[in-house]
Design a protein around this nucleic acid. Structure first.
Lengths: 325, 325
DNA sequence: CTGAAAGCGCTTACAG
DNA sequence: CTGAAAGCGCTTACAG
C-alpha cells in the first residue's frame, strides 16, 4: 500500500501509472517519438497536464536524452537592449530553466534572419509579414511569437486596450491636445498602441495630433518632444508608447521649463519603475507573457494544435498626470 | 575484456579503479565528507587531478544532491537595465546553465541589500565599502564580485588601462582639451576610468577639465554635454566612461551643430555596437569576465582559496575620433 | 574507515 | 504499437 503523503513532484512513474501505460510509452509521447497510438498519446498528455508533470532535467540528461535547445531571437533592428526584452528574457529563462531546456540567444545573419536554429524558437518583436515566420515554418521548427501573426502560436499584451485606457484617462482629465509619442508603427505593439489612441479620440470627437516617432528609446523620446516644442506644436498631454520614451519626454519638458504634470501630463507604457518613479503608465505582466510563451512552445514541441493568447494590461495612475489647467 | 578506446570523459568508476578504492570512497573525498583516512584521501585526489576528473552534474543532482542555486544581485541604484549587466547576465547564464546550477535574480530590500540568498552569489557593480560584502560574509555564503574589494573573490575589466588607452589615443591625435564624461565615481569602474584619464593627462603635462557626470546613461550623457556647451566649456574631444554616454554625447553635439569627429572626437567604453556604430571605444570582454566569475564562484563553493582576476581591455579605433583641427 | 548495493528519474534498444 | 529491463554517473544509508 502506498503512503498517502502527496509526492512533492510527480515523476514519470506517476504519469505512467495514472495513464495505465509503461514509463517507456510516456517517455515516447513526451519526446514526440513516432509510433504511439493516437488514443494512447492523448491519454498520456491528459494525465501529464492534470498532474502538471515536468520531466526532471538531470535524469533526462543523465539517461542520454539530449537537452532540448530553445533559441530566442531578437530582431536586430530594435536593439537587444530594450528593457522589455531584457525582462522578457529573464522570465523566459525562469520558465524554461527548471524544465530541462537550454536557452540560447540566436544571433542574426546580415539579412536579419536567425543565423542558426534550435529545437524550438521564441521570436521577439514580431509583426505581420515578418520574414522570420516563413523562414521557421519552412524548416519545421516549432516556434512561438511575442507579437502577432495569423495562424501561428503567439502571445502578446493587450496593447490596443492599454492604449485606450491611457488615452481615456487623459481625456477624462480634460485633455484635448494629446500628443502620441510612438515607436516604429510597422511593429505590432507600436501599431496597436497608436490605434488605441486614435480610437479613443475618434470616439470622443477629438482630433488626433500627428504622432511623433521616438523609436522606443529615451533619447528618441527626448528629441521628439524637443522638436515638437520647437515646432510650436500645442499639447497638454503626452501618451508615450513606452516608459523609456515617457522618461525622455519628461526630461525634455523639464529642460524646456515645463512642469509635469503641472503644464503637461505624461503617460507611459510597460511599467518599468526604473524609467520614471511617479509615472502614470500601463502595466504589462511580462512574467505572465513569458510563462505563456513557454507553455505555447512546449505545446508546439509536442505537436499540439496552434493557439494564441492575449494578456490583459492595466492602467496604473501615479503622479505624472493631472487635470488640464 | 574492456575496449581499448579511451573513454571521452572519466567517470567516478575510473577514478575508483585507478585509486584502488570504491566509488563510495571517491564520492566521500570529493564531497569533503568526514571519516576518510588521510592517505586514502590523498591517493584519490592525486588520481582525480591526474585524470582531470570532473563529476557529472546531472548524475550528482539526480542522486540526491540538490541543485545549487546561484543568485546574482544588481545594485538597485545603478538600474538593472544597464546593457553591460544584461550582457553579463546572459553570459553568466551560459556559464552556469550547463553545470547544473540554477541562476536567479536576487531582489533588493529597501536598504539595497539582497532580500534573500542562494548557495552562491554574484554581486554586480561592487565598490570598496560595499555593504553587501560584510552582509554576505557574515552569512557564510560564497560570493564573487564583478568589481573590486580587498581580500575577496572578484573579477573586473582593466578599467584603468582602458581609460589610459582611450585618453592616450586622443592625446596622440593632438587633443589637449579633453572632457571626461563620467559615471558616479563612487563605483569602482567609474573611479578607475577617471583615474586612467587623469593619469595620462598628468603624464603629458596637460590640464584635465572638470569631469561631467552622465550617470552612465544615454540621456545623462546628452544632458551633460549640452550643459557643458551651454556653459561655454572648451573641448575638442570627449572620453565617455560608457558607450551609452558617448551615444548621448554624439547626439548632443549634433543637436548643437557640431560634427563628430570633425569638430569633436568622441571615445566610448564597453564596445556595444548598438550604441554608436562607428564609435571609437574600449572593448571589454564581457564573456570572459562572466566565465571567470563562474570559475571563481565554483572555487568558492568548493572552499578553495580566494583569488581575483583582471581581464584586459582593448582600444578599438573607429570613425568617431580624428586629429585635432 | 571503507565496500557493496540500492536508487535518483529518465531514455532506449530489445523483445514481443 | 508497447512493456520490461538495463543503464546513465553519482550519493548515501547499511553493513562490516
Amino acid at each position: 500500500m502506498k503512503s498517502a503523503t502527496p509526492s512533492p513532484r510527480p515523476t514519470i512513474q506517476d504519469v505512467a501509472q495514472a495513464a495505465g501505460v509503461s514509463t517507456g510509452t510516456v517517455s515516447r509521447v513526451l519526446n514526440g517519438r513516432p509510433g504511439v497510438k493516437a488514443a494512447t498519446q492523448a491519454a498520456v498528455l491528459a494525465v501529464v497536464s492534470r498532474l502538471e508533470y515536468h520531466p526532471d532535467t538531470a535524469a533526462r540528461q543523465l539517461s542520454g536524452g539530449s537537452t532540448k535547445r530553445i533559441g530566442f531571437h531578437v530582431p536586430a533592428s530594435s536593439g537587444r537592449f530594450l528593457p522589455f526584452y531584457t525582462l522578457f528574457t529573464k522570465h523566459l529563462i525562469d520558465g524554461f530553466q527548471g524544465q530541462g531546456y537550454r536557452l540560447e540567444d540566436l544571433p542574426s545573419r546580415s539579412d536579419g534572419l536567425p543565423e542558426r536554429l534550435a529545437d524550438g524558437v521564441v521570436l521577439f518583436g514580431v509583426h505581420d509579414d515578418d520574414p522570420r515566420i516563413p523562414f521557421l515554418a519552412a524548416r519545421g521548427v516549432p516556434f512561438v511569437l511575442e507579437g502577432h501573426a495569423d495562424a501561428q502560436r503567439w502571445v502578446r499584451a493587450d496593447d490596443y486596450s492599454g492604449a485606450r485606457q491611457a488615452t481615456e484617462h487623459l481625456v477624462r482629465l480634460g485633455h484635448t491636445e494629446i500628443l502620441h509619442l510612438s515607436g516604429d508603427p510597422s511593429g505590432q505593439a507600436a501599431f496597436d498602441r497608436l490605434r488605441g489612441y486614435q480610437g479613443v479620440l475618434a470616439d470622443a470627437g477629438i482630433a488626433a495630433l500627428e504622432p511623433v516617432d521616438g523609436g522606443f528609446c529615451v533619447l528618441g523620446g527626448y528629441r521628439a518632444i524637443r522638436r515638437a516644442l520647437a515646432a510650436g506644436v500645442q499639447f497638454s498631454a503626452v501618451f508615450a508608447a513606452s516608459d523609456e520614451m515617457a522618461h525622455g519626454a519628461v526630461a525634455a519638458l523639464e529642460d524646456a521649463g515645463l512642469g509635469v504634470p503641472r503644464d503637461v501630463s505624461v503617460v507611459g507604457f510597460d511599467d518599468l519603475p526604473e524609467f520614471g518613479e511617479g509615472l502614470t503608465t500601463v502595466r504589462q505582466d511580462v512574467e505572465r507573457i513569458a510563462q505563456t510563451a513557454v507553455t505555447l512552445l512546449q505545446e508546439g514541441l509536442r505537436g499540439e494544435p496552434v493557439r494564441h493568447e492575449v494578456v490583459p494590461v492595466q492602467l496604473i495612475v501615479r503622479g505624472s498626470t493631472a487635470r488640464r489647467r
